[in-house]
């Protein structure tokens, strides 16, 4: 069943759907054949959705990725992870509901699942801190990864977070350190790691479970160094320009594919995953099973070498000796102009 209108650009769909439902009701209660009219309206609806979604701006896409009805990690677990054995706790401090970990099977493959979960109803959302993990979440994930490594299980991570939690407790317990350790350990974890961004790929909070061998992204998900609102607040001095920031950040799946950050864009049902979660789950499962089988086929040493190369190669720099010479010349000129007051810098007296 389609959800009620939430986003501005979805409102026309809802109006049309209401009309279709009205006709169907009439059809059921009264004589006369309205099926041609209904079919025509359905075609119009599909066309309308196709057109709207064909023209989504980067900011619209961010809105879809945050849609209140968008399927979340636990929905996908319910749809396609069989024999899920959830594992709790980081063994140091607590159990972070925003990070779900456990053994499970997809397409008959045994895996270790690590997923960021935002929570569906208000109570669960609060318990999950709206999908913003604490350090104990990242440490729980690492514990699960080490267990996977020990038993040669592929790690599957589902990324969906606005970012790692920015709070007092998170800082007291070393949020930065917890994420850093994960980046280092995932780079050398001796078992395959495959990831998919299913909603929001919020900065370090996403990367903290996002280093691995293969990275997919759903069609209306994003992955960015900072939220568009955060970027706008800092660079444009107002969060209201999030729309402009979303465009500048190149955070859409298409941009990420072009930049070599993701390997594959996983198509969503017409109008987004929230309009047909079951179809979305089927597609995602098929892709994940493919990723896992592909990674498992590769000899481990080769897999690790490729993982390193994949991480190592990201970045774009120019070697520009002329620019360096010019800068040094400018500095030298300035030095000659200034009094030699600080020619000798003090060194350690010890």
């Amino acid at each position: 069943m389609a959800p009620g209108p939430i986003l501005e650009f979805e409102k026309p769909f809802a109006a049309l759907e209401e009309e279709i439902q009205g006709l169907e009701k009439v059809q059921a209660e009264q004589p006369g054949d309205l099926s041609a009219e209904v079919a025509a309206l359905r075609r119009t609806l599909v066309e309308m959705i196709r057109k709207t979604y064909g023209g989504l701006t980067p900011w619209n896409l961010v809105q879809v990725s945050r849609h209140p009805q968008r399927p979340l990690a636990r929905d996908y677990i319910d749809y396609f992870v069989s024999d899920f054995k959830e594992l709790h706790g980081d063994r140091y401090f607590g159990d972070d509901a925003a990070m779900v970990t456990g053994f499970g099977k997809i397409g008959g493959e045994k895996i270790m699942l690590i997923a960021e979960h935002k929570g569906r109803d208000t109570k669960e959302r609060v318990a999950c801190h709206f999908g913003c993990p604490h350090p104990e979440g990242y440490r729980k994930a690492l514990r699960a990864m080490r267990l996977a490594e020990k038993y040669a299980l592929p790690v599957v991570t589902l990324i969906d977070t606005p970012g790692a939690f920015p709070g007092i407790g998170a800082e007291e317990r070393g949020q930065a350190q917890a994420i850093a350790i994960n980046l280092m350990e995932m780079a050398r974890l001796r078992t395959p790691i495959v990831s998919v961004v299913i909603g929001e790929g919020g900065s370090g909070g996403a990367l903290g479970i996002g280093v691995g061998d293969r990275m997919g992204i759903l069609q209306y998900a994003y992955y960015s160094v900072i939220s568009p609102e955060g970027c706008a607040a800092i660079l444009w001095k107002t969060a209201k320009l999030a729309e402009a920031a979303a465009a500048s950040l190149r955070l859409t799946p298409q941009h990420l594919l072009e930049l070599g950050i993701v390997d594959e864009i996983i198509p969503e049902p017409l109008g987004g995953a929230h309009r047909n979660p079951r179809d979305m789950a089927t597609t995602l499962e098929r892709k994940l099973v493919g990723f896992v089988r592909q990674a498992k086929r590769m000899p481990l040493e080769k897999l690790l070498a490729r993982r390193y190369e994949r991480i190592r190669s990201v970045g774009k720099v120019v070697s520009d000796p002329a620019a360096l010479v010019a800068l040094n010349a400018a500095a030298a000129a300035e030095k000659a102009e200034a009094a030699p007051a600080n020619g000798n810098l003090p060194l350690d007296a010890n």
């Binding site: 980046l183 992955y223 160094v225």
Partner: peptide, 26 residues
């Protein structure tokens, strides 16, 4: 932190430096 003006490429420098440190540690 990461440089916003290089977007996701900046974020990936976190993984890059950390991966290199894993090798140094090894």
């Amino acid at each position: 932190g990461a440089r916003m003006m290089e977007g996701i490429i900046s974020l990936m420098q976190m993984a890059k430096t950390s991966a290199a440190l894993a090798r140094l540690d090894d």
